[in-house]
């Protein structure tokens, strides 16, 4: 008996169905992600100036060598790293703390959970505007509170030293609620009998947290760690709305710098080359993180 062609077999049919299911996603990804990424890579090798779309010249790696000497890029890079290195552990910690709080059998649990989560559903732009009011050195809420505690007024966003830290605090407040929900799901997945066993062994609250809760959350923590890191690298809205990258460039992030060069200064070629560098950077960091996670699991 002649063998059926592969596509006529049960296995083949399932494969076709599978690929058909994949198709819509693949098409959309190609149009809205892969194609733009490809063009960005192409533009990064040209001197594309937005007002002269028909006069793109191939300039090789000139844009990339310009990045090396670009003080603004360097500053934006340092700012972005600073933001990421601080925001990731703080946000992770705050999210875990909030999750532990609302996981307790408290009155008004639902209310607190909603309250902590509500900043997440607000638009980041809106939150940024509101916090700009609250950070206002003369009339803002925060200095009002500080004054009532007898602490001298702070300049917040208008000081090069405090602006980025102020943005970090706001970002954690806005973002932590989301990770809290993920942590909460993780907490509720830890079997109760583990805690019971720990109690029988005489473990105190802290020991239970250290030896039961934390190991139970390990995979979730790593997932959150990666997503926060990538999100932190994409810092844009907060400085754009709150400080316009100032004072003295102290809150200019990489993505903001790329946006400005590309759209305000119309230098799409150079902006694309910075975007390529940025993508490679995030890619490397993600791969390293993935690698570390694999190690941990193994």
């Amino acid at each position: 008996m002649a063998r059926k062609p592969y596509l006529k077999t049960q296995e083949g049919k399932e494969a076709i169905t599978g690929y058909l299911f994949l198709l819509p996603a693949l098409i959309l990804l190609s149009i809205f992600l892969l194609y733009p990424m490809g063009t960005a890579f192409y533009y990064s090798l040209t001197d594309f100036y937005i007002l002269r779309p028909d006069e793109k010249n191939f300039v090789g790696l000139e844009n990339f060598s310009m990045i090396l000497g670009d003080a603004a890029f360097r500053q934006a890079f340092v700012n972005t790293m600073y933001f990421t290195v601080l925001v990731v552990p703080i946000q992770l910690g705050v999210a875990l703390g909030l999750a532990l709080l609302v996981n307790k059998k408290l009155k008004f649990k639902v209310f607190f959970r909603t309250a902590y989560f509500s900043p997440v559903v607000m638009s980041l732009v809106v939150v940024s505007i509101l916090w700009t009011f609250m950070y206002n050195p003369n009339e803002g809420l925060f200095n009002e509170i500080l004054a009532s505690l007898g602490i001298p007024e702070q300049p917040f966003l208008s000081s090069p030293d405090q602006a980025m830290n102020s943005i970090i605090v706001m970002s954690v407040w806005q973002g932590a609620g989301f990770q809290m929900m993920i942590f909460l799901a993780g907490l509720q997945n830890i079997p109760g009998h583990l805690y019971e066993a720990a109690e029988i062994d005489g473990a105190n609250l802290f020991q239970k947290f250290l030896h039961v809760t934390l190991p139970g959350l390990k995979n979730i923590s790593l997932f959150i760690f990666i997503t926060i890191t990538i999100a932190a690298f994409k810092l844009l809205v907060q400085p754009m709305i709150m400080t316009q990258g100032g004072p003295l460039g102290s809150t200019k992030s990489l993505v903001y710098h790329i946006y400005e060069v590309g759209f305000n200064y119309r230098d799409v070629g150079y902006a694309s080359s910075m975007a390529v560098v940025f993508t490679v950077m995030v890619l490397i960091i993600t791969i390293v993180q993935r690698f570390l996670i694999k190690e941990e699991e193994g």
Partner: peptide, 21 residues
Amino acid sequence: KRMSKWIIPVSMSVALLAACG
């Protein structure tokens, strides 16, 4: 004057929350 400092953010957040959808 003191109150207005609270009212602006609070009333705005209400208005903007409503506008979110």
